[in-house]
Amino acid sequence: MANTALADPDSGLTQAQLAARHGLRVAGERPPLAEYTRRLWSYRHFIAAYANAKLVASFSNAKLGQLWQVLTPLTNAAVYYLIFGIVLEQNRVPNFIAYLTTGLFIFNFTQTAVQNGTQSITNNLGLIRALHFPRACLPLAVVTTQLQQLMGAMVVLVGIVLVTGEPITWEWLLLVPTVLFQALFNAGLTMAVARMGAKVNDLKQIMPFVLRAWMYGSGVLYSVTLFEQSLPGWAARLVELNPALVYIELARVSLLESAPLLNSSPTQLWLVAAAWAVGMGIGGFLYFWRGEQEYGRG
């Protein structure tokens, strides 16, 4: 230590040297990955509270309040059943209504998470510009909110499945890892689109079309066997790798007795599901972290 200075040891230093001497850090610097992950973990209560607050706020003006958590998926299922079950008569799938609602609710989890995730940065600029917290909290809160919504939808789904005469089996438990894998996949994807949406506002306009195309490619509204019949072999193999389709198939396998499947081997289904979850989860997180210092800047 230079203690020879008579009055002020800081005199004669440039501003940068002064800052370095006292261990100051550049404002708004991106923390290293391990530090960022640790900080994100310590904000888990914030993520949960924020997700819950969003959920409560979204129904706070409605007369029926939180009942909409269950009514929304129910109405949705009713509308699609009217069109695809009654008007278009998709009767080659056994127990079509349960088949349809399973696909619809599982896909809706990914769809809404991605849609809201695209705007999770731009819609919270006030919060971002006022407080410092790991920004990944915001897309993660979106996924948590949607996961809570899915729980509401699951209650409806189980009701529908039971009413339509499916038996309760041990296989139902497979729904838990399925939803966990899907949630991890959604978290990664939502973080990725959150960064893209923060950079390019136009993504908000494009997203509905992308998601609709994805929905048609995931066999939500019709029998997945249609892919095998009408697509060339390699394209059908490609569709088998579609993560949304994989999660939907897994949910159908666990709930329904005789649902038609595109993937014949359950091992392959689980492997693809796990690979997408881990790959997208880690990849999306890394991609989001790399943009951490850009969020909230005009």
Binding site: Q15, A16, A19, H22, G23, L24, R25, V26, A27, G28, E29, A53, K54, A57, N124, L125, G126, L127, I128, R129, A130, L131, H132, Q293, G296, R297, G298
Partner: peptide, 27 residues
């Protein structure tokens, strides 16, 4: 506060400054 980037030069801070503005958004 580190919420806007500095184009030239630098701002160094001790710890994490907190900005308290009248437009800090709450729900």
């Amino acid at each position: 506060a580190g919420l806007l980037p500095v184009n030239r030069g630098a701002v160094y801070t001790q710890g994490q400054p907190s900005l308290l503005g009248v437009n800090a958004a709450l729900l």
